Simulated scan of single mutants.
Amino acid sequence: METDNTKTTLRPASLRWKILRQALLRRSSPQNSDEQSQIGVMNRISRKTTQGFNLIPCQLIEKISNSRDARVCYTLPVAGSPKLFLTQRVDNHADLGDFEICNRCNIDNTGLVCHWPSEDVLAFFSLSHADMFRSKRVIELGSGYGLAGLVIAATTEALEVVISDGNPQVVDYIQRNVDANSGAFGGTTVKSMTLHWNQDDFPYIVDTFDVIVASDCTFFKEFHKDLARIIKFLLKKVGPSEALFFSPKRGDSLDKFLEEIEGNHLHFSIIENYNAEIWKRHQMLMSGDESWPNYDKDHCYPFLVRITL
């Protein structure tokens, strides 16, 4: 979800409750004109898409009976790469239990909503930059269903890949996906992890990782301070190390996050055109490609931010 500069100035928390209300309205009586208008606003706010940049072909394999889940096959567009099979949700309904867990754990539920386009970009970028991960210890933050982390584990000969999220429901999906693809990882150790960016009790992973990766993790400004802090904690202090973030600008959200990065005495660079194929598809969408009807550069196109100590 994202807030446009349109007819709403609602804060993220208010938007989440409106989204829940919208989901409940779908299951009750037909909407009146007021309710239909609210849904129209939410449709303008939402940047969710089933299409994205179409960088990694995927196919629904089976809908899991008596479940909201399905198995999806991702065919990596590099010769010799294995297919990856992910279990993920395929419905569009918010669930009251999801919101209860979010409130209890002080997290958001975006990792459950869908497979987000920036994750696709991170996964595709990793495929063509295997040398950045080879023999390295890698952690993905806020990974959702874990596609990018699984791609790194299956194709780059990384030493270790930790796929993390703060939402325990999401981590359950990650572990299922790690187990389902265990034969694709070769000698790479792959783990799931519940990791809250504000936690202090993780001495076993401080000063550990050569590479941190993340996609679209800078949206909620209330998490910026903790996110910048944990990057500094996790990066290995001896030898080269860096964090690779793929994030749309989303108004001033990315800029505010980078202020926190500087406040933690970290260094960063921003790259707009970092891959020829991704840039070509971005240009096509900007020119009116109808596969992503509400495409907007500020909200949808992820910049590459490279962060170092």
Rank of each mutant, 00 (worst) to 15 (best):
D91T: 14
P117D: 02
D95K: 04
S118P: 09
C114A: 14
P77R: 02
P77C: 01
V72I: 15
C73T: 15
P82A: 04
K48E: 15
N109E: 01
V90P: 06
L86P: 06
G111K: 05
C105Y: 14
G80A: 06
T49V: 10
W116G: 07
S118G: 07
D95G: 00
R71V: 12
Y74V: 03
E62V: 10
G80T: 09
V90E: 12
T49S: 14
S118N: 03
P117F: 08
I45R: 04
T50G: 08
T49G: 09
R71K: 12
I45Q: 12
F85P: 00
D69S: 14
C73W: 03
V78W: 03
P82F: 00
D95E: 09
I45S: 05
P117E: 01
F85C: 07
T49Q: 04
E100S: 00
R89S: 11
R104K: 12
F53H: 02
S67F: 14
G80V: 08
Y74A: 03
N54T: 07
L84F: 10
Y74R: 02
P57Q: 02
D69H: 14
T50D: 14
A79C: 06
G97Q: 04
G97R: 00
Q88F: 05
L60P: 03
L84Y: 14
D69C: 13
C114F: 10
A70I: 06
S65W: 02
S46R: 01
T87H: 11
A94E: 10
S67P: 13
S118M: 08
T49E: 05
V78S: 03
P117A: 09
W116C: 05
T75A: 12
L96G: 00
S67L: 12
P82E: 05
R71T: 12
S46P: 10
Y74W: 11
K83M: 01
V90T: 15
K83H: 07
I56F: 03
P117S: 07
D69N: 15
P77Q: 06
I64V: 15
D108A: 00
H115D: 12
Q51C: 11
S81R: 03
N103M: 01
N92E: 14
C105K: 15
N103R: 11
R68L: 08
P77D: 10
Q51M: 13
N106C: 01
G80N: 06
P117T: 13
A79V: 13
R71A: 05
L55D: 04
V113E: 11
V90S: 13
R68S: 10
L112W: 05
L112Q: 07
R89C: 11
P77G: 05
I61P: 00
C102Q: 03
V78L: 09
R68N: 09
N66W: 07
L84N: 11
T50C: 01
E62Y: 08
D95L: 04
D95V: 10
G52W: 02
N106K: 12
E62I: 04
P117Q: 02
V72P: 02
L86G: 08
T87A: 09
H93Q: 10
G111F: 08
L84A: 10
R68A: 10
L96T: 13
Y74C: 03
P57R: 05
